[in-house]
């Protein structure tokens, strides 16, 4: 017996034992999907936030439209738009060599999740950057620092601490929202669980999946709390 069959064995449930390995495999896919999209979304989100604040009226409006659209529509709808919609633009995607990318459901999901979370993260970064007091900017300029230098050495380190908690929330939200990937044929944790239920008609596989999601979310929360305490230790007096 492999380790992934053990939980089902312990609770004495055949369905969980039989599909345990598939479900843990699905959990791996879920985590891959989330880590990839949140990491890429972080970079894109920061770029969007900077454009939104410093990009001038036109680019700023475009960035605003981007965040409004992706924060105002359901992730499921966006995913279907990309997943089913990509097929319609096959000749075009072929000509720019991207059809191979969009043919794969995993890539579609990773792409959609990335641009979705980037929109949310952009708002987090915008708020964090704007929360840095103007006096910091003025002092840095008085010292003769350049714009990029000020951002990098003065603003970002202070904004990062403000952004930390909401970013942790966003990561948790992505773990949960990634379950919709199962609706475009991806066998993530939700997908493998649906399969297990369709074959065994045993509702306890859903409960087991809920426990797994809960463990992941709680682990992220705990780790984030520790990280936050460590990174803000200079702010605690006595």
């Amino acid at each position: 017996m492999t380790w992934c069959e053990l939980p089902g064995y312990w609770v004495g449930n055949e369905a969980i034992q039989n599909y345990g390995c598939r479900m843990f495999g699905g959990l791996g896919i879920t985590l891959q999907l989330v880590v990839i999209s949140v990491a890429l979304g972080c970079v894109l989100g920061l770029a969007v936030a900077l454009v939104r604040i410093y990009g001038g009226p036109v680019a700023g409006r475009v960035a605003l439209a981007y965040t409004t659209f992706f924060r105002g529509t359901p992730l499921l709808c966006q995913l279907f738009l990309v997943y089913y919609g990509a097929g319609q633009f096959r000749p075009f995607l072929d000509s720019i060599g991207l059809w191979g990318f969009f043919r794969d459901a995993f890539n579609c999901a990773a792409f959609t999740f990335t641009i979705n979370t980037a929109a949310y993260q952009a708002e987090i970064f915008r708020g964090a950057i704007q929360s840095v007091h103007r006096g910091q900017w003025e002092a840095a300029r008085a010292l003769g620092m350049r714009w990029s230098q000020i951002l990098r050495t003065i603003v970002f380190p202070q904004a990062a601490i403000v952004a930390l908690r909401p970013l942790g929330n966003e990561l948790v939200i992505m773990v949960k929202s990634s379950a919709v990937a199962s609706l475009v044929t991806i066998f993530d944790l939700m997908g493998t669980t649906r399969l297990a239920f369709a074959r065994s008609f045993d509702l306890s596989v859903y409960l087991f999946a809920a426990v797994l999601y809960l463990v992941v979310v709680e682990a992220i929360r705990r780790v984030w709390d520790l990280a936050e305490r460590r990174l803000t230790r200079h702010l605690h007096h006595a």
Binding site: V172, V175, K176, S177, S178, A179, V180, S182, M190, T193, R194, F197, Y206, A209, A210, Y213, L214, V217, E218
Partner: peptide, 9 residues
């Protein structure tokens, strides 16, 4: 902590 989709199912 549990995905809404899973709760729904």
């Amino acid at each position: 902590g549990v995905p809404e989709l899973l709760t729904l199912y």
